[in-house]
Amino acid sequence: MRWALALAAAALLLGAGCGDDDDDGGDAGSGSGDTTRLVVSAASSMTEALEACAPEFEDAEDADVRLSFAGSDELAAQIRQGARVDVYAAANTSLPEELYGEDLLSEPVEFATNEFVLAVPADSEIESVEDVAQPGIKVVVGSESVPIGSYTRESLAKLPPGQEQAILGNVVSNEPDVKGIVGKLTQGAGDAGFVYVTDVNATGGDLKAIDLPDDLEPDVTYGAGVPTEAREPELGHEFLAGLTLGPCATALEEAGFGPSP
């Protein structure tokens, strides 16, 4: 019995040791190799744009760019849980500001703007926000925890209360990110949703964007920074600079993003 316990303890140590070895191995691999690895955590809405410009950055800096897309809030949570990333680019400015306030991120820079729109399938008869308040319309929105979800609630709160309630009452799903909303609309499951204009552009005509009245449109500004725990902070700042000037700035513009305010 005693030897079994000893072995179990040894195995535990061994297991832990192996884990560490793996980590060290990873570090050594990226450190001693010719190319450095840059991990970029970016909001889902930038997927197409950043995928388009990353290769140019890789060639110019001789780096290997790892793009990781998800809801901005989720990426922020990962950084809070200790994920080592080199650039954090969010679909709002409040999340980067929060991380900055917690000493987890460099002072955020605003690098792009987006337009908050009503999205409907291309063949839809919906023409305005008023139509979305009609009974039976299936509305798909972002969950309250993601920027698109909070923009949506912020915008709807500016409508007359009856209309706001009607639209919120029509909500059939609170999706964890923009892709979920767009997917439900392109599949014909939902009738209308609130997303960014760049998401509508990315569907290549499957969805159409309906502009909202100016007073309903929230100010959608994207902010980014380099996490304090970044492995490659210098390269991270390079990438950050490239978001406002360079191939990535161009790619963002082509995807429909506006220049930084």
Binding site: V140, S143, V171, V172, S173, N174, E175, P176, G180, G183, K184, A189
Partner: peptide, 13 residues
């Protein structure tokens, strides 16, 4: 579930 049914408190969440 998320992709097919969506996510709504009390209905699909």
């Amino acid at each position: 579930t998320l992709m097919f049914a969506g996510s709504f408190q009390g209905i699909t969440q």
